[in-house]
Each structure stands twice: as C-alpha cells, then as structure tokens.
Simulated assay, not measured.
Amino acid sequence: MIEDEQYGHLRSLNDFRNYLLAIQWDMSRRELVGRSLSDAGYTRIQADTYSYLTRVDLLKKLCSIDAAERDRAEAHSGALASGSIPDSEENRVLCEPQFEFVTPQQLVAIDFFLSMHHYAPHAFPALAVWHDVNVLRRRYPTPTLEPLPKPDIVLHGWYPVGQYDKEAPATGLRSFDAEQWNPYRHPGRPGRYARTTGGEQTVYFEETSQFDVDAEAACLFVTCTYDTAFMLNTQHRDAIDSAHFWLNEGIVKLPTGMAQRYQEMAKRGQYFSRLAQRLNLTPAELDAHLIENAIGDEAHQALLGYDTTQLSLFAEAA
C-alpha cells in the first residue's frame, strides 16, 4: 500500500515503525539505572527502558515526520490552487496534514518526564527538540537499519544509593525558588508548596483523576512563549527546573494521590545527575562507574537476609 503514490505521505510512518523494530533489541540504547529501590537501598543496574539519548532521538524523528507532513500538505495545497493537480475530493483532503504525532499537549507531557531524567542536560529538553525542528528547521530522517537478534539481558549488579541520599543530595520536586516567589506570583493559593502522600515537601501542584496537561496553556507556551531567547536563557538551568515549572504553573496536573511516585522519579533522576556532577563524569562514564562499582546478585541477596544456598534433597536423604 505504501508503494502507491496515493499513500506516499504514510511512507515515513512505515519507516519509523521499521526503525523501532530494528532497535528493539539494541541494548546499547537502553537505560542501565533501575526504576526502584530494594529494601537494602540498592538499585538494579541492567538494561531496561530506552535511554535518554534514544528517547530524544525518537522525539527528533517524530517531530521531523510531523514537520514534513505539514510541508507536504502546504505544497499539495499550492499545487491544487495552481491547477497542477486535479480538483478532487481526495486532493482537497490531502491539503490538510493527515496526522500529528507530537501535539503541544503531548510535547509538554514528554518534557515533564524528560526533565526528571538524570542525563537531561538542561531545562525544557523536549521543547528544545521541538524548537530545533520547527523553528530552526532542522530535520532528522529515519534511517534503515537491520534488526538485531534478541540478546541475553545481563544483570550488571546492584548499586548502593540509600534512599537517593548516599553520595549526593536529592530534593526531587521541591523548588526553593517557587516557595519564595509563590506568595508574590500566586497570592491566592492556599500555600507556597505542597506535600506528597508520603509527607515530602514539593513544589505546588494540582491533582486530577489522571495525569493531565492543560492543552490550551501548553499550546500557548510552546508556540508563543518558548522562543529562541527563552530557549537560550534556559540552557544553563537544571533539567528538573522545568518539571518544577510545569507543576507550579498548573499546566501539568498529577493523578490524585500519586504525587509520591512522581517524587521518587524526580529524586532518582536528580540523584544520579548530581552524582555525575560530583564525580565529574560524562553519561557514558557514569554508566561505566555504575557497572564497575555494583555488587553481585548473591551479595545483594545476602544483604536482604536471603539464604542463597540451594539445598539438595538427595544430599539430605543420603
């Protein structure tokens, strides 16, 4: 179907699908840091979800696909107006973009989560990608890759983090700037900050029945506020600052009663970001450091108080 010129605008979607299938088992594109803590205060070091660079790479490609579709629709509309193509119902439909993967609302949601990642280099990382593609007009084509076979997923070990406080401090979603400025910028609020269900103090946030992004506010900020000057001015800000911003301004709303989970996500990202700063390590060097200094699975089981000795029933009987 994609070979038919009638459906040529869908070719990029097929290419992206094939790209996802090709990188599915590429463990070099995976995250090493675990998403939870053990009772001993360790986190698993093992290939898991897509890494930060892979997520940004996918976002660049999706934004490029969206931009190319808008360009195609504009060119098609011009061809129809000039009489270069027949004035048919099908051609009139194709004068409008046929899809949009990354809306401003979705972009803000992506930015919120990327802002809590330990390898995000600055605030508003997803918006910087959108600006790169839609304002600076850079394009990131989807390459054709050969799929890799499914490998064994190696457990590198367990790395000690305490409660994300062993080697570096982490306050997660707490914003001292917002606490100072909220009485002036938002005097009508019931408080300068909020607390999670676990009792931890965080930036002010609002709750709804499920995770939500204010579509109108997101569109206004992405398309009108976030210009080149704004992008450059936030390059030196910590990534977590944009997560604070989305919550404090009420653009992103958390699911009711789930704030502690997001606080843990933020603390994990901030902890490893600050650990990299303290040790003066690049992302690749930090990954190597985590692997080198992780303890084995048996040692971790021993810390948990588990008996790793496998008893033999036949030996007992003898």
Rank of each mutant, 00 (worst) to 15 (best):
V203N: 10
V222I: 06
F211R: 11
Y140M: 13
D214H: 11
Q201S: 04
V213P: 02
A194E: 09
T196S: 08
L254R: 10
H118E: 00
E200K: 13
R195H: 03
C219R: 15
P187R: 00
G199M: 13
G188Y: 01
L136I: 04
W246C: 13
P190K: 05
W246I: 11
Q163S: 14
A123E: 06
C219A: 15
A120M: 02
K150L: 01
V133T: 07
R137L: 07
H244P: 02
R138S: 12
L127D: 11
P151Y: 02
L173R: 04
A168P: 04
K253P: 01
E179K: 14
D212I: 01
D132F: 02
Y140L: 11
Y193C: 12
F221C: 05
L220Q: 14
A168K: 06
D177L: 11
F245V: 07
T144E: 10
D214F: 05
H118T: 00
Y159V: 01
W246N: 10
Y119V: 11
H122I: 00
Q263H: 14
L220R: 15
T202L: 00
W158D: 04
L136S: 12
G191Q: 09
D214I: 07
F176L: 15
H186V: 01
T197H: 03
R138K: 15
E207S: 15
W246K: 03
E179I: 10
T225Y: 12
P125Y: 08
V161E: 03
V213E: 04
F230V: 12
H156A: 11
E207W: 02
L136K: 14
L254T: 10
P151I: 09
A194P: 02
N233A: 13
P160C: 04
Q201W: 00
V129T: 02
W130Q: 11
V129A: 08
L145N: 10
I153T: 02
T202I: 10
E200Q: 13
S242D: 07
E216T: 15
E179W: 12
R137V: 09
P190R: 06
R138C: 10
A217R: 15
D152G: 14
V135K: 04
Q163T: 09
W181K: 07
Y226D: 11
G199W: 01
L254E: 06
A126S: 03
A218H: 06
G198A: 05
L220H: 15
Q260G: 04
L173W: 07
L136D: 14
P183V: 03
S175Y: 08
L232Q: 14
N233S: 13
A217D: 06
T144H: 06
E207H: 07
N233E: 09
A243R: 05
K150V: 01
V135T: 13
T228V: 04
I251L: 01
V222K: 03
R237I: 08
H156N: 12
G257N: 10
Q210M: 06
D165F: 04
L136C: 07
F221I: 09
D132N: 07
N134Q: 02
R237W: 11
V252R: 11
T225M: 00
W246E: 14
P147T: 05
E206I: 11
V252M: 06
R185A: 09
F230G: 01
D177K: 12
M258C: 13
Y184L: 15
I240W: 05
Y140P: 02
W246H: 12
A194Y: 00
H156L: 05
Y204I: 14
G199K: 12
G198Y: 00
E207T: 15
R139V: 03
D227Q: 04
